[in-house]
Design a binder for these strands. Structure first.
Length: 470
DNA sequence: CTTACTGACTCCGGACAGGC
DNA sequence: GCCTGTCCGGAGTCAGTAAG
């Protein structure tokens, strides 16, 4: 610490810096210690507090013409674990995940340009996992990011670099450092970043009239794939909305088995930073930085699980719910064969477990839709029949099945009697509004057709008997 | 608490097919 | 050729939900 103070004094006195580096060398980006800034840049509290804060947080300080940045670097090595996940396994899965990422990109085209972007393989620029800690949730020009957390795969490790804003007046310097780092990376991966992180950081660059380094960078927001795969999943404790949500903190427990100890609740994060800005004591921020690092690694863990499911297919899950979500994801991406295989497995799993009438019914209904849409009405009818016959089938699903079967029998198999009795069953259910109107309309039409057919039969019989008598 | 994005749902119009 | 019904995509609406 004495050396830091020496260095600090030299800055305050406007002399050249001593030989002690205040930033870790980073050849890829080309940082060099150049601590010659005028002391006025360190308001509201002095440079000693910034250096002390960096030391408290295990970081380093770099100075730029427009301000000062605290940088905290951490490395997660292959043998480290995140919950029950080995970091090395996450890295390997993500590295090999190119095809699965493209599937996600096709499913959510707003993940602009993910196709063709590497996943951190030897020739690709590494993915940039991004997570901000901000002064609030409210967005707009008043909310600032005080930690820009970035993670990237580097060899056999995940490297996390956190850019901490030492005071509001240093924002331009932080943004410039982030831009330099982001420029060395490829596609962006976030959690709810499309709504939160990216618009917020774009606003900050816009505010300072500086080009945003994320403009035009391919972006995969994992929230949407996560919702597709895991939303509304039942939990061991029953239907608990808190435990079946798709927040990152809930998913990391579910997917990676990570249980955080002493984690900072999100709502507390802004106030810890305001406290730091007031008194310069960085200790409350240690937990905030740790929270941010865990979020970044969890983001990678969620991504790895999604990649495994998409790449390996439905055989790697024994959960009918997850399997159904996988089918929906494939369907969105246009991989209809994979979608159908996943639906069949979901149905099979639900049948074996026997405890999931909703997911079972949902999968059968989806299977029927997929088959009808791909021009296989007879196979679709099989699925509708299985759905209508499902024990404990939710009423709405059964009604859909009977309507679809009535259409099938009227127009495809030409079994008007079966169609009519199905419509009568639908009407017994007491549908309301347009559904009732449609069913009554169908019934009248079927009865007309049946009468015509019977008349035709009578005429034919009469003709035949006349022919015999002649 | 705010914001904006998504998905589910409904409605509407056009394309198409089949029956008469 | 007309009528009826289905299918499909696009537009509009609304509720739910992540982020600190």
């Amino acid at each position: 610490m004495a050396s830091l103070n020496d260095r600090l004094r030299s800055i305050v006195q406007g002399t050249r810096p001593s030989a002690v580096p205040v930033v870790s060398p980073d050849a890829a980006i080309g940082h060099h210690a150049a601590f010659s800034h005028q002391p006025s840049a360190f308001s509201p509290f002095g440079p000693d507090r910034i250096l002390a804060a960096a030391e408290t947080l295990g970081g380093t300080v770099i100075e730029r013409p427009n301000g000062v940045v605290i940088i905290v670097d951490r490395e997660y090595r292959a043998d480290d674990v995140h919950g029950r996940q080995r970091i090395g396994d996450l890295i390997e899965t993500i590295r090999d995940g190119q095809d699965a990422m493209q599937t996600m990109a096709r499913a959510w085209p707003s993940a602009k340009g993910m196709g063709g972007v590497g996943t951190g393989g030897s020739k690709d620029p590494p993915l940039l996992f991004l997570d901000l800690e901000t002064t609030g949730l409210f967005g707009g020009a008043g909310t600032q990011a005080f930690v820009v957390g970035c993670a990237a795969i580097d060899g056999e490790s995940i490297r996390v670099r956190q850019f901490l804003l030492p005071g509001f007046e240093h924002e331009r310097a932080v943004l410039a450092e982030v831009a330099a780092w982001a420029g060395a990376h490829g596609a962006l991966v976030t959690y709810n970043g499309r709504t939160f992180d990216v618009p917020l950081i774009e606003t900050r660059y816009l505010f300072h009239r500086v080009p945003c380094p994320l403009d035009g960078v391919p972006h995969l927001d994992l929230l949407h794939a996560a919702r597709r795969l895991w939303r509304g999943r039942p939990t061991a404790a029953g239907p608990d909305p808190d435990e079946s949500s798709c927040s990152l903190s809930v998913l990391e427990k579910h997917l990676a088995g990570l249980h955080r100890v002493g984690d900072v609740p999100g709502f507390e994060i802004p106030s810890r930073y305001f406290q730091f800005v007031r008194d310069g004591d960085a200790r409350p921020l240690e937990a905030v930085l740790e929270h941010n690092r865990l979020d970044l690694i969890s983001l990678a863990a969620v991504m790895a699980r999604a990649i495994t499911l998409i790449a390996e297919g439905p055989r790697v899950t024994t959960n009918p719910h997850e399997c159904f979500g996988l089918a929906r994801l494939y369907e969105r991406s246009g991989a209809i064969e994979n979608a159908e295989a996943s639906l069949l497995r979901s149905i099979d799993l639900a049948q074996r477990i026997g405890a999931e009438p909703e997911v079972h019914a949902d999968a059968l209904r989806r299977l029927a839709w997929v088959r009808r849409r791909t021009g296989r009405p007879h196979e679709a009818a099989e699925a509708w029949r299985a759905l209508a016959a499902l024990p404990r089938c939710p009423a709405g699903f059964r009604r859909d099945a009977m309507e679809a079967l009535a259409i099938f029998h009227e127009h495809r198999s030409r079994d008007l009697g079966t169609a009519r009795s199905l419509v009568l069953d639908v009407l017994k259910d007491g549908p309301l509004g347009r559904r009732r109107d449609a069913a009554e309309h169908r019934l009248r039409r079927l009865e007309r057709k049946i009468a015509v057919r019977e008349q035709g039969g009578l005429v034919a019989a009469l003709d035949a008997s006349l022919e015999v008598s002649n």
